[in-house]
Amino acid sequence: MLRYIARRLLLLIPVILGVTLITFTMLYFTPGDPARLTLGEQAGAEQLEQFREIHGLNDGYVVRFVNYIKNAVFHQDLGLSYRNRQPVFAEVASRFPTTLKLAGLGVLVAISIGIPVGIISATKQYSLFDSVSMIFALIGVSMPNFWQGMLMILFFSVYLKWLPSSGFNTFQQMILPALTIGTSTAAVITRMTRSSMLEVIRQDYIRTARAKGQKESKIITRHALGNAMIPIVTVIGLQFGYLLGGAVLTESIFGIPGVGRLMVDAIKQKDYPVVQGGVLFIAVTFSVVNLFIDILYAYLDPRIRSQYK
């Protein structure tokens, strides 16, 4: 198992290199002059030249890429922000915990709604509960979360005045963003839990458990849920990655200083090092989450576990 984890961690290196190469290349070919955009129309030729010199913009594509990788690997230096000359690493790192917390809370909300509702829906297939929750799940996946966020602000902050509409420091401030970001994930998890459970409860070993005289509730928790867990866990992992990268809108609506907002602002101003750094952080986190999910598979299913030995 340890060898497997070590191997997977080593595999992260090419993944990160690949992500860096792709974002770097795409940003390189984006039209527009960062020097001009940052310094403004009034800047003289000398100033522009100086800016390009500092940020290494005069070098060729290959040289710039190699330098970027070299600095990143040996000095943990992801370059300086064009806008405020601050190190990118520190800037992204300072905002990263907020994004992580938002995505984490969102997933937590989604799991605590999605799994129980999915289980009940599956065990009472075609019941009223099942129909109603499937309708809500459909609404949940189809509703854009920025729109839902605004509706919630209107209702809970403006109309009821129960919860604050922006910020992300106190518990009250976290409720609305977490619900907003968790809704579509909750819907996806509900649907996956339901279909996975429906498949498992038709299996022969569930009948065996019934024939033993086991209680229906125990059959669900002890025999069915564990077997239904793999696809559910997969979806949770993917959704978590999606929330990490896709929190931009939620962060903008609720005025949360996270990586998403930082990146959107950076894209607008062609602040390439910041965009690059943000993408890298998200990619690494996503890979680590997926590694964790794969390890979880082994914990959940002895058949997978025996392959890792």
Binding site: D204, R207, G213, D301
Partner: peptide
């Protein structure tokens, strides 16, 4: 439930699928 598995029990056709894999 007190009778199932206790006084009357059953062996199923396909042993490959009638045991819980986990």
């Amino acid at each position: 439930r007190k009778i199932r598995g206790n006084q009357i029990s059953m062996i199923f056709q396909d042993p490959m699928t009638s045991l819980n894999p986990i």
